[in-house]
Amino acid sequence: MEEKTEAAEVEARPLLAAIKTGYLPMSKKSRRSMVKPIYRGGCLCGAVRFEADGPALNPHNCSCEFCQRHTGSLTASWVEFSATDVRWVGSGGSPAVYRSSDFSSRAFCPECGSSLGAIDDSPTVALLIGTFDDHRLPELKPDYHSFKPEKPIWG
């Protein structure tokens, strides 16, 4: 009986040490699954490029007048990221912005004019899903539609 108890204590020591120190060793597979995905995209001419560290938040469609005017489309598809998780990495640097409301600025490429998204005063950057290199990812699929009354009747 004592041998089993002693063996169990020996096996439990690394786990107890991990709990005490706050460090729990993980397999390589577990560490990879905890890494945030990096989403990439940019404008039509390629001057303004972005990298956004996941998770992709609040994917949705919007048919408000601001989105319609910003994109030239009756419906815009957006996904949000924390502003600290978005980097502008292209040769053109950060996008140009137009202050469209009391709480947000619309972002676009100063070279080709492509709409890229909205940079909100709150720490959020909303990127247009069509600007992503891989816009077919399941986590980018819109979950809902805001401003439904303005939605096109055929959509």
Rank of each mutant, 00 (worst) to 15 (best):
G46V: 05
L57M: 13
S77A: 14
S94V: 08
S105G: 08
S115C: 06
D102Q: 08
S77K: 00
F81K: 06
L57G: 00
D121R: 12
L140M: 05
P95L: 09
T84I: 12
K141P: 07
S73R: 05
F103C: 06
S100P: 09
G130C: 10
R106L: 12
H135L: 06
L127G: 03
L44G: 09
D85H: 15
P59W: 02
S73H: 07
S100W: 12
V89Q: 00
I129R: 05
G130Q: 08
C62W: 05
C43V: 00
D134T: 06
E51Q: 13
S114E: 12
S73F: 00
F103N: 12
A96T: 13
R106N: 09
S94K: 10
L137T: 03
H70T: 10
S105C: 08
F66Q: 12
S94I: 01
L140H: 01
I38R: 11
I38F: 08
S91D: 15
S82H: 11
A107P: 03
P123D: 14
P55A: 10
H70I: 04
C45L: 10
L74Y: 07
R40Y: 04
G93R: 11
F66I: 15
P55N: 10
V48K: 01
A107T: 13
A76T: 11
D143W: 01
C112N: 15
S122D: 13
C67W: 08
E65L: 14
N61Y: 05
A118G: 11
S104Q: 05
P142W: 02
D143F: 03
S122K: 14
G113D: 14
V89M: 03
V125H: 01
W88D: 03
G41V: 01
